[in-house]
């Protein structure tokens, strides 16, 4: 196992670009975009429910559900600050260098990863996915450095909190 910056450790990179749900999701980035566009307002509008239940109390179950769904669809690594909508539905945390702004200069001529020669570059796929999306130009947005305290948290609940100003912001776990 070649060391990579991503976590959880030991989750092997996929080979080839077929036969995995992650690549299906990228090929259907537009569908994923539409599904999320329908899903996000529901989560945001359910804010009173989340508040009644307690954001902190539902954090772990919500994160588990999110990890299961996004893990299956995108090989999500639960960075807690999801930017799939800006990366053509290709999870950037699967890049062994964790690059969130674009590919490195080491992409092989066949479009595969410098570190894992059998894995298609996450950003080559991100570019392909972004071309299929309605709002694919978001790939040009500059992403800030990742907040490592948010690892494992639910991005969905975070969106619900951020869109509802009366919700207390999540305290980062130490």
């Amino acid at each position: 196992m070649i060391p990579a910056a991503f976590e959880p450790r030991g989750k092997l990179p996929p080979k080839g670009d077929r036969g995995r749900l992650r690549f299906f999701s990228i090929r259907h980035a537009r569908l994923m975009e539409s599904l999320y566009a329908a899903f996000e307002p529901i989560v945001v509008r359910l804010h009173p429910l989340w508040r009644t239940l307690g954001y902190d109390r539902i954090e772990r179950p919500a994160a588990a559900v999110e990890a299961a769904i996004k893990g299956a669809l995108f090989d999500c690594r639960m960075c807690g600050q999801c930017i799939l909508s800006s990366t053509g539905m290709s999870c950037p945390m699967n890049c062994p260098k964790n690059l969130r702004n674009g590919p490195c200069g080491g992409v092989r001529q066949d479009g595969n990863c410098e570190v894992y020669p059998d894995m298609p570059c996450v950003w080559v796929k991100a570019w392909e996915g972004s071309r299929l999306m309605r709002d694919g130009e978001r790939i040009a947005d500059v992403q800030p450095p990742i907040d490592h305290r948010r690892k494992g948290e639910s991005s969905w609940l975070r969106v619900a909190r951020e869109r509802n100003p009366d919700a207390a912001p999540a305290a980062p776990r130490a």
Binding site: P3, A5, N98, L99, Q143
Partner: peptide
């Protein structure tokens, strides 16, 4: 090759 890759920031950030 056994070293820990850091990659806390990327070149853009």
């Amino acid at each position: 090759p056994e070293a820990k890759p850091v990659f806390d920031l990327d070149s853009t950030s």
